[in-house]
Design a binder for these strands. Structure first.
Length: 423
RNA sequence: GUGGCCAUCGUUCAAUGGUUAGGACCGCGGUUUGUGGAGCCGCAGAUGAGGGUUCAAUUCCCUCUGGCCACCCCA
């Protein structure tokens, strides 16, 4: 037995698992591209500094979960595996001058990301995300579009009970005042808070609303609500988004305590959740507006919004609910033969059939005809072509075992087509 | 990163401080020699790795690796 195994938190997907991931990935691209989003394929590594500045050096994602690459001697720029999509995509937007394209620029990618976290079901060190980003539009309309896109994608997959939790986290103008209010609210119980929460009180009081600590949770109940502290512009923006989503048919649950994990979000923030699912797996995805990010990473200020949906979690959810994702297999023809001398001919025929657009495979294993038929049967073949020792063909319909003997190649192809059509 | 539970053929389950660690499924082959699905027969295949305790360990202990759960965080 080999001593090697896949690295912790990274998986080999094959068979039904690979098919499910592929199906979700296809559905994601189909949904986004139908809505006018263009694919972007960006590097899986970026300069570490991009993440440090963009995502925030104090966030867990950067501070302890970043995969930093050991640099080659001749390279001076430290690189890291991407822990999320947005920073890299926005970097691409800036680098390639996409602001001179019609705005907003709509982009989509389904790709792997990396975080060095303790793995669990639905949480892996290499995970796949469906990312949608709309860059260059400050208005509330694009918020509605993007939120609706993710919600209807999940519904179309069969996750009809997905909930959209919605909040506004304010902007650089109004958030400081709210943070101060929160700080004042929690300050009296500082002594009862855990170490983590005390740090939060100091650095990022918004995250206190997310705490699991009993004292903090109790205090959070009576905490001042974020909506009441939004500036007029932020409040108006949120109202338009909420109203628009309602008209668009997306039911939204107001979540005044919803805050996102990364620093760059402003105003609109939301999550896609499955009710009643244990632990993290119910958190299918989330998104937000990140109007300040472009300036943070050295571009001109550019408003933008996007979401990330965890493909692995979607796959788990579909599996738990026994929702089928597999693509229907094309009717298969297997080309067998008697005598190994015909193997080249079998492959030639298989290739010919594929060129006509039907699925075909030659049996190339040295084994007798009975075993070849057994294999074809198990693969679910509808037709088997047998190359006889004298070079003639037999065509066997696997459903009833009836054989015919087409005289030439053209009639073989015709007969196969007829069989395939019948299924 | 912290804490807990776990680890036997590819899969799923047995068993034991002491002969060749057993079954089922899957795979491969055979069933009188050129025709699939059933049945029957056979073959292959495992104690995750490394230390220790012991006359003897798959079984007890430790470390590592990996999985799962909770926390942290997040997709």
């Amino acid at each position: 037995m080999s001593g090697f195994q896949a690295p912790r938190g990274m998986r080999d997907l094959f068979g039904a698992d690979a098919a499910a991931v592929t199906a979700v990935e296809r559905a994601a691209y189909a949904a986004a591209e139908a809505a006018g989003y263009q694919r972007i394929i960006s590097p899986i590594a970026e300069e570490s500094a991009l993440f440090e500045r963009g995502i925030g050096g104090a966030t867990d994602v950067v501070a302890k979960e970043l995969y930093r690459l050991a640099p080659h001697a001749e390279d001076s720029t430290p690189l890291a595996l991407r822990p999320e999509a947005t920073a890299g995509i926005l970097r691409a937007y800036i680098q390639h001058g996409m602001r001179s394209a019609p705005q907003p620029v709509r982009l989509v990618t389904v790709a792997p990301f990396f975080r060095h976290d303790r793995p669990q079901k639905g949480r892996y060190r290499q995970f796949t995300q469906f990312n949608v980003e709309a860059i260059g539009d400050a208005g509330p309309g694009i918020d509605i579009e993007v939120i609706e896109l993710g919600a209807s994608f999940l519904k179309q997959l069969g996750l009809t009970d997905v909930e959209v939790h919605f909040n506004s986290v304010g902007c650089s103008g109004c958030r400081p005042a709210y943070a101060a209010a929160l700080r004042a609210h929690f300050a009296p119980i500082e002594g009862e808070l855990g170490e983590v929460d005390r740090t939060r009180l100091r650095d990022n009081p918004l995250r206190l609303l997310d705490s699991k600590d009993a004292a903090a949770v109790r205090r959070a109940e009576s905490a001042p609500a974020l909506p009441g502290h939004l500036c007029d512009a932020c409040a108006a923006h949120a109202d338009v988004v909420r109203a628009g989503l309602d008209v668009a048919g997306v039911k939204v649950i107001d979540a005044p305590r919803l805050v996102r994990g990364l620093d760059y979000y402003s105003r609109t923030a939301w999550e896609y959740l499955l009710p009643g699912v244990e632990g993290q797996q119910g958190a299918l995805g989330g998104g937000g507006r990140y109007d300040g990010l472009a300036a943070l990473i050295g571009g001109t200020a550019t408003p933008a919004i996007g979401f990330a949906i965890g493909v692995d979690r979607v796959v788990h959810a579909l599996h738990d609910r026994k929702i089928e994702t597999g693509a229907v297999a094309q009717p298969l023809t297997v080309i067998c033969g008697i005598g190994e001398g015909s193997i080249g001919e079998r492959i030639r025929l298989a290739s010919l059939l594929r060129a006509t657009g039907s699925a075909a495979r030659a049996d190339v294993t040295p084994r007798k005809i009975g075993k070849q038929l057994e294999g074809a049967s198990r693969d679910g073949a509808v037709a088997v072509i047998i190359v006889e020792p004298d070079g003639r063909y037999s065509l066997r319909a696997m459903i009833d075992g009836k054989q015919e003997e087409p005289t030439d190649e053209a009639s073989v192809l015709r007969a196969v087509a007829a069989l395939v059509k019948r299924t």
